[in-house]
Simulated assay, not measured.
Amino acid sequence: MTDFVKQEWQIIRFDNDIASEIQDTVAIEYPLTVSLNGSEFATMVCSPTHLQELIIGFLASEGVIRSTKDIQSLQIDETGGFAHVELVTPIDPKNVDHSKRVIGSCCGKSRQFYFQSDVKTAKTIMSQLTIRVDQCFKLMEALQLQSEHFHDTGGVHNAALATADDLLYVHTDIGRHNALDKVYGRVLTDHVPLKDKVIVFSGRVSSEVLLKVSKIGVGIIISKSAPTDLALELARDLNITVIGFARDQKMNVYTHPERIYERVSSQGL
């Protein structure tokens, strides 16, 4: 599969009432159907890059696997849009309900709505990592510099795994949740330790996004966009620091601010 997530499209652009025919760039939307041991499990609409990481991250996020050791084989038919996964221990996809909601308890502090798979896979984060304000700004600036597909199309999201100093992996997708699944798949494939890692993100921090960050196992998410109230309730319970509107040397810290400190302050205050 090509590394490109965009293609050219002939359009007519109006500037006031003056029309001109030009080439525009649009994001590619690619349906990928995943089968487990011969039975169809789910169809994802995604960008056609890093599909193996996407599939691994998605299956882990749904609680189907815990590590890559649970996968016996993974074959991708890029032309047909199918991914065939054989699990070491077969499951019946009909028994994996990723739409049924249950009320679960999170750290005993509050009751929130989860999908059934979230109850099994969401984690309370115990990371003691702290990060300076200026490092947050630099990480977001670095993500923006690597967002060429967004600048070209305006139709994709970016998610990165980073240390406090550098971006490690950057993944792009038309779906913000897909971008995070690609990060998760890379973490599992490369066996990346997570205690000193953060997520840098281009999209809105919804409850779904927050739960994916929890499942990955990272304690800080830095986004240039806004969070939702349910995401913040979950972040407070799951011990995740949510930073939003990180742009133009400004940012909002919504939960667990003890992980964030100024350059001139003592670490940990």
Rank of each mutant, 00 (worst) to 15 (best):
R186D: 12
V213D: 00
Q267I: 14
M44Q: 09
V264L: 15
D17P: 06
M140D: 02
P227M: 07
S20L: 09
K182C: 06
E62W: 10
S47P: 04
H50L: 07
G38D: 02
G154S: 10
Q7Y: 14
L129R: 05
E53P: 05
L36H: 03
T228I: 03
H149W: 09
P227N: 09
C46Q: 04
K120Q: 14
D3E: 14
E148K: 13
Y169P: 05
S265I: 05
E148C: 08
T43F: 01
Y169W: 11
E86C: 11
P93D: 10
E8N: 12
R111S: 07
V242H: 06
D17R: 13
F201R: 04
T121D: 03
Y261C: 08
L210M: 12
S225V: 03
D24V: 12
P48F: 01
S39F: 08
A42K: 13
T121L: 10
D237T: 11
T172R: 10
S223V: 06
Q7E: 15
S206P: 08
D152H: 11
F113H: 11
V209L: 11
V156A: 01
E62S: 14
Y184D: 02
T68W: 04
I12Y: 11
S207E: 10
H149C: 08
S20F: 08
V187P: 09
D70W: 00
A235L: 07
V5W: 00
I65V: 04
A122L: 08
R186F: 13
D77M: 12
M251L: 11
S73L: 06
G155N: 11
M251G: 04
L74N: 06
T49G: 13
C107K: 14
E86Y: 10
I65E: 00
S73K: 10
D237N: 15
M44P: 04
D190A: 11
D24A: 15
T255N: 00
V170M: 06
G185P: 11
D166E: 10
S39K: 15
K195H: 08
T2C: 08
G38E: 00
L87D: 00
V264H: 15
A42P: 04
K215F: 08
I221C: 10
L74T: 09
E62T: 14
E78Q: 04
V88E: 01
M140Y: 02
N95F: 10
A19L: 09
I22D: 06
L32F: 03
P48M: 01
W9N: 12
A142T: 07
A246H: 03
T43R: 12
Q135M: 03
V187E: 02
F14I: 11
N158E: 11
I260C: 03
A159D: 00
D77G: 11
N252H: 13
A246F: 03
V183A: 08
N178W: 01
T43D: 02
I76E: 00
V200C: 04
F14H: 04
L234K: 06
I243R: 02
D190K: 12
